[in-house]
């Protein structure tokens, strides 16, 4: 469903952020991308929807080579890739509803979006999604009035209303407390199951990655150094990804009963 071939990114500064990544992800798989800061996780997912232009190689989504698209066709393809951001990246001075509806911008003409005249189906879907994440009453609040967890839920709605095939998730829990982090990760996971979505999730927290994904890819210095099941993360593998450290506490199996359902 998504296939990366020799994907390479060299920044203008000369830093080689991705060194020829080959990766193929079947439909419906939730994949966690782990690795230390600067390993190229963010660059990798941004090269897929070309918020960062890859230097070389290709990313093929449903038979379409994204790296070759014209800017118009690229916009069309971006509609099929929902993105969830670190620090939420909501437009803070717009209302929650406008933030959710902004996920439909690729489908709506300029003047319609200027006057906030979105199709009835989109508005209905927006309300349904807000209800699904438990924020129905917040629709008219401004985004900067919400708490961190609430903002990330809005971010999730914005990505889902695009009706995407692929979800690109960049450090969704980076600025959230541990409990909210789990709730957000569980929500993303559930939504992916409900809709049969493919997802790539960048995440710092190894425990969360193990809990909520079917496959884990470890990235170090722009190279894939691990690709396998969550259970396969041994201290040796983690050392390969992150470097020397005592990993015994990290990979202890988590107990789900401590969390609220």
């Amino acid at each position: 469903m998504l296939k990366l071939e020799n994907l390479t990114k060299r920044y203008n500064t000369g830093d080689l952020a991705l060194q020829g990544i080959d990766l193929s992800i079947p439909g419906g798989q939730v994949l966690a991308l782990i690795g230390p800061s600067g390993a190229g996780k963010s660059t990798l997912i941004r090269c897929i929807n070309r918020l960062v232009e890859p230097t070389n190689g290709s990313a093929i989504l449903n038979e379409v080579n994204l790296t070759k698209l014209s800017s118009r066709a690229l916009r069309k393809s971006r509609r099929k890739m929902g993105m969830i951001f670190q620090e939420y990246a909501l437009v803070e001075r717009l209302t929650v509803m406008e933030n959710v509806l902004s996920g439909r911008l690729g489908y709506v003409g300029f003047w319609k979006s200027f006057f906030r005249k979105f199709p009835k189906r989109d508005v209905n879907e927006a309300f349904r999604l807000l209800d699904r994440v438990g924020l129905l009453e917040m629709a008219d609040k401004r985004a900067d009035e919400l708490s961190g967890g609430q903002r990330q839920r809005v971010g999730i709605c914005r990505a889902l209303i695009q009706d995407p095939d692929l979800l690109l998730v960049d450090e969704p829990t980076a600025s959230l407390d541990p409990k909210t982090s789990r709730q957000i990760m569980r929500l993303i996971n559930e939504l992916c199951q409900e809709r049969g979505l493919t997802a790539i999730i960048n995440i710092h927290d190894v425990l969360l990655a193990q809990m909520f994904s079917q496959r884990i890819v470890g990235l170090a210095l722009g190279n894939i150094v691990y690709d396998g099941s969550p259970e396969g993360l041994t201290p040796e593998v983690l050392t390969k990804i992150y470097g020397e450290e005592d990993w015994s506490a990290t990979i202890e199996k988590v107990d789900d009963e401590y969390e609220e359902a």
Partner: peptide, 18 residues
């Protein structure tokens, strides 16, 4: 914030107003 709007497939003008 602009990047997030861009990622939805918004055109340049739409990125401007949103």
């Amino acid at each position: 914030q602009v990047e997030a709007v861009k990622a939805t497939g918004a055109s340049n003008l739409q990125q401007m107003i949103y």
